[in-house]
Amino acid sequence: MSDAWQAAKLVIERDLRLAFRNRGQLLHPLLFFAIVTTLFPLALSPEPSRLRDVAPAVLWVGALLSSLLAIEFLFREDAQDGTLEQYALSGRSLTWLLFAKTVSHWLLAGLPLALMSPVAAYGLAVSPDAMPGIIGSVALGTIALSLLGAVSAGLTIGIKRGGALLSLLTLPLAVPLLIFGAQATARAIEGGNMAAPMYFLGAFAVLGITLAPLAAAAAVRISME
């Protein structure tokens, strides 16, 4: 195993270990997602056909908002205790290390969200046949979302009350993800062909993987100056 892979593995292992020691922070976004998706039937109606119609929108808006909560913590502690500075000075590519950090963030935030979305979807009267499609679309969409979040989290390091600003920066940029993600979920629910929106989500993930770590590294460097 080459050095770069070793470094990435260490970063990911460290993040996972820290996250499991502080489970509350890990669970908050998921709880938020569960509560938000519960509020919709209460606000709208318990009628299954109406719930099924709004299910993609509820799932995706909920996923977007709850991953914003998770993004807020992406760099906060590492910036405060100087870990990010160590990364920047380590002589390894900061881009690569931040990419590894984003991978661990997706494992801790995006993937659990994807695995939880069938539960929320079931509550919204979606038939079990649609669940694999829903898991797939949320899992794929949150890859690009985590990468995008890494850029805006990097930009807002050290800003007081950065939470609101973080949403203002991230949400407009996430509009394409919301459109194609919700469409993929809608097609999964209808039993239609998910290929087109999934290809787009895949393309965004690839675009994010190539560009976002560079931008995130630049943002982190600037924020630490």
């Binding site: 930009l155 407009p172 509009v175 394409p176 459109i179 194609f180 965004f204 560009l211 931008a215 600037i222």
Partner: peptide, 17 residues
């Protein structure tokens, strides 16, 4: 950095909308 990220996003937003 934000402006550059945004300008990559503007055409994507346009076409996805």
């Amino acid at each position: 950095v934000l402006a550059i990220v945004g300008v990559v996003n503007v055409p994507i937003v346009r076409y996805s909308v």
